[in-house]
Design a binder for these strands. Structure first.
Lengths: 234, 234
DNA sequence: CATACAATGATTGTGTACAATAATGTACAC
DNA sequence: GTGTACATTATTGTACACAATCATTGTATG
């Protein structure tokens, strides 16, 4: 440790982290309105800081910003979802190829540590484990040493969380941890193609949880109401 | 045309566009300090808007933001440069594969139009042609219809401009337009592998212009000073 | 009854003032 | 003469107040 002094994050950054976590843990669901006033009041900071945080989230594609209307947690379309999963396959395959056989002892240690965290969070099967599952993939990308690749993986993984929040039938991620373990093993063994196959299978099992034909609940309020409309007397 | 009413861009967005163009046209060189006050004065807007623009640029990786110090045009390291070119090869190969044989007539029209612009700007061989050359690649990505892929290509291409500004021996992009034309032809012919080869060759010829061993002028001030330090009497 | 229009309300966009922080210049002690 | 501590200055970080904008609602009219 190099005398870990917390780098004194700005308030905007704190708000950003908090909101991001909330979104990734699916406590803020797609479509939720993120009012600057309300958030500012809740976090006891000025709207200025909240604005900065929201803009950054917009940059990550996690929130949509409508002019003079406000910010909302992004609602990826089905098409968008397919797009993102497709890119994820490409990006994470690359990660695996770069990592296979090149994991340093320290890397393995970090991965194992993370998986342990996942296992501890598992019984809860709640928000935390959802976020950790995603962060495993980001950690893998980090280990490649490529900042840009990490960035791209991070973005696609984050948005995958949104997609699952919107489309997933049931968000049990039981199998995930197991698959993570096996991926680590394959990487350590230097078996590139096996690792890649595992990863692709893993991603497939994530994607398959999403039924892209029907969004979960509050897709369009209008769409929901339409389903109830016929119950009314004509 | 669908009655092109300019969508009334916010001031922050205007500043963002202007700064981005200036950076991509290499009029603002890597390392340049972007003082909020000065920019605000120059654009006749408040620092608030400038701040928003700078933050967005930071999101694009075009500026580095140091806490309480200010924003600077990013100075990609040699390592970073290799990283980005590597990712570019991957991303743009994907673009080509998706596009080959799938170009709609309208798409071809847009591409030709863009190339014409490039040709007109060519004699100048100045800032504009540099930016247009990059935007050709972004346009290709757009035609895939994948928002995320477009975003990633856009980011890597933009940062490539920065890299060339920092490392390129001479920034003559004479050959580029020719190569762009040939890529279009191959795509239209549906010859995927030829198109991909052309693109990779094209990217290679861009990358080779950069001598990653020696940054153009103001690299790390510290690094430069170190080279001069031994000239001093001990 | 549907449609067009005007008033209203709420929310974001922008500017300005102040606080916090880091870099720089200066004086002093050794 | 050199190094350190302190004061100064410049720049960013934050808060707040006001203006602009859009959505909504209510009202009148065909």
């Amino acid at each position: 440790m190099t005398s870990d002094v917390p780098p004194k994050r700005s308030r905007a950054e704190n708000v950003y982290q908090a909101l991001r976590d909330a979104i990734l843990e699916q406590n803020l669901k797609p479509g939720t309105k993120l009012s600057e006033d309300i958030i500012a009041g809740e976090f006891k900071v000025s709207r200025t800081s909240v604005r900065a945080a929201l803009q950054q989230l917009r940059g990550d594609g996690l929130v949509d910003h409508q002019a003079n209307r406000g910010a909302f947690v992004a609602e990826p379309s089905a098409e968008n979802a397919r797009d993102i999963f497709s890119l994820r396959r490409m990006l994470e395959s690359e990660v695996i190829r770069r990592l296979a056989g090149n994991l340093k002892p320290d890397d393995v240690k970090r991965l194992r540590k993370h998986v342990e965290q996942e296992e501890r969070a598992q019984p809860v099967n709640g928000p935390l484990s959802i976020r950790l599952a995603g962060e495993f993939h980001i950690l893998l990308a980090e280990l490649t040493g490529s900042q840009v690749l990490t960035r791209f993986v991070s973005e696609t993984v984050s948005r995958s969380s949104l997609i699952l929040a919107r489309f997933a039938r049931l968000h049990s991620s039981e199998c995930a941890v197991d698959e993570h373990v096996r991926i680590i093993a394959a990487l350590q063994a230097g078996d590139a193609s096996a690792a890649e196959a595992l990863m692709l299978h893993h991603l497939e099992s994530v994607a398959v949880r999403a039924d892209l034909r029907a969004p979960n609940s509050d897709g369009d309020t209008a769409a929901i109401l339409k389903r109830y409309a016929r119950a009314l007397p004509t």
